[in-house]
Design a binder for these strands. Structure first.
Lengths: 109, 109
DNA sequence: TCAATATGATACCGTTTGGTTTCAAATTAG
DNA sequence: CTAATTTGAAACCAAACGGTATCATATTGA
């Protein structure tokens, strides 16, 4: 099995708007490279590079079928991002608690 | 009030590991630029550039106090990231539902 | 077989990024 | 006032990024 890509590769993959758009596009169904590229204002080669970076981050999985390459979305690879965000959830809740306290104090007056 | 930074600036700000570390470091308490830079293996000037990009993404807020600049974490700016992620929550649930259906079908047999 | 199709791979180019060094400017401490 | 402190800003550099064009390779369809 492929080793889980380090968190950095996930963040890096998501840093480009075209790549995020590709992920959105792949929600519907799996696609060949040419299908993914269709609609983007750049060459197929450029899209291919983006797909490679997405693959590096584990966000898509590529399966060969004849001369085609089927690109499939792998939403599970977003977990590192979720985990990282959750660190700030905790902090966020602390702020909310502080706000709640402040409001209660204010209401009591 | 400062206009909400477009989602792209948030993703871009989070793409660098040093910047993510800075955000983690700022969870505890607000810090001057020199304090943030302390512990990183690079010059203060380099850290300052990272802080500027974090500020561009709205992830920190900077307040001048005398000759110092106090950098404060702004976790609310992570919302665009949460929103974007939630799009795939839906997709994820769809996959779970499909799995559930498949399992039920299989059980019924 | 042979031409069309789908992709892979490489070289190349301009811009951005992540870092440095250096110097100016503002503020504060003594 | 003067020196030390904290930051801002600019010039510079190598590497990465996002894109192009070009050519090679593998597969398929007629």
């Amino acid at each position: 099995m492929p080793s889980a890509p380090p968190e950095q590769l996930v963040f890096r993959a998501l840093a480009d708007p075209t790549r995020r758009d590709i992920l959105l596009k792949l929600r519907g169904h799996d696609m060949t490279i040419a299908e993914v590229a269709d609609g983007f204002d750049m060459t197929r080669a450029a899209v291919k590079k983006h797909l490679t970076m997405l693959s590096d981050g584990g966000l898509i999985e590529v399966q060969a079928r004849g001369r085609e390459r089927i690109n499939r979305l792998n939403p599970a690879a977003l977990s590192p991002l979720r985990d990282w965000l959750s660190i700030f959830d905790e902090f966020w809740e602390d702020k909310l608690a502080a706000l709640k306290t402040a409001v209660e104090k204010d209401t009591k007056t």
